[in-house]
């Protein structure tokens, strides 16, 4: 919940949403889009292939370990080839743009569009049903994380910037996850945070990141079980 007018909310659910109770629905988790790199002193975001590979493996493993959703079976799909692969890549990219829009115009309260002040009225369009046909799932879960750790030069720039009253962002740690109705394309739930925690290059950090990404997902166990597990 926002504490001031310009506060950011972490997640939003389509009003009135509930999983159907007459059957167990199927959620498919698409391969997380993971990018890790370095943010240079000049502000250049340089990808790091080794860090990205490590983080991708750790995050995927953690999601498989901690994916329980009440009232739904959760399955994972690899990266399809050919036409299906191209289609998934395009929808993954479209999800990124939609998530960007929701993060800026819905979760960031001070930046809401007048025509969309309430609810969660965003979609990927009905064409996304091709992913339902390919997977047999009712809902699709997309995940994205982007980390760029400050280089030593950037850390120096931060120190000098602070001396002269100039703010230098130490790094990028953006993440979001979204549940999509694969029949209609409607966004059911989105969780986004421009300042995520957890160093995704380590197992502990990846565990923390996945916990943050899935926080608030409809049907997820809340608080008590998660705390108990970690203790």
């Amino acid at each position: 919940m926002p504490t001031v007018a310009a506060a950011q909310e972490r997640h939003a659910v389509r009003p009135g949403f509930a999983y159907p109770k007459d059957r167990e629905v199927k959620i498919v988790v698409f391969r997380p889009d993971v990018r890790v790199g370095t943010l240079t002193a000049g502000g250049l975001d340089e990808p790091n292939a080794d860090w990205t590979a490590t983080a991708r493996t750790l995050i995927a493993a953690e999601i498989e370990r901690a994916h329980g959703v009440q009232g739904a079976t959760v399955s994972f799909v690899g990266e399809p080839e050919g036409e299906d692969g191209v289609r998934l890549a395009q929808y993954r990219a479209l999800f990124g743009a939609v998530a960007d829009a929701i993060m800026i115009h819905r979760l960031f309260v001070g930046n809401r569009l007048q025509s969309k002040k309430e609810g969660l009225d965003w979609t990927l369009g009905e064409g996304v049903s091709a992913l339902a046909d390919a997977t047999g799932a009712d809902y699709g879960l997309f995940l994205f994380t982007h980390d760029a750790y400050g280089s030593s030069g950037r850390k120096a720039a931060q120190i000098f910037g602070a001396m002269f009253g100039v703010a230098v962002i130490p790094g990028i740690h953006v993440g979001y996850a979204g549940l999509i109705d694969l029949k209609t394309g409607d966004v059911i739930w989105l969780n986004a945070d421009p300042q995520m925690g957890g160093d995704v290059r380590t197992p502990e950090g990846a565990q923390k990141r996945v916990g943050q990404l899935l926080d608030g997902l409809p049907g997820r166990p809340v608080e008590a079980p998660a705390t108990a597990k970690r203790n």
């Binding site: 943010l39 962002i169 953006v174």
Partner: peptide, 23 residues
């Protein structure tokens, strides 16, 4: 500005809260 990195910076910048949208 709508790149992921810049979106984060946009959200972190307090002055961006003053940007508004009119119907």
């Amino acid at each position: 500005i709508l790149s992921f990195a810049a979106a984060a910076a946009l959200l972190l910048a307090p002055q961006s809260a003053t940007a508004g949208w009119k119907a």
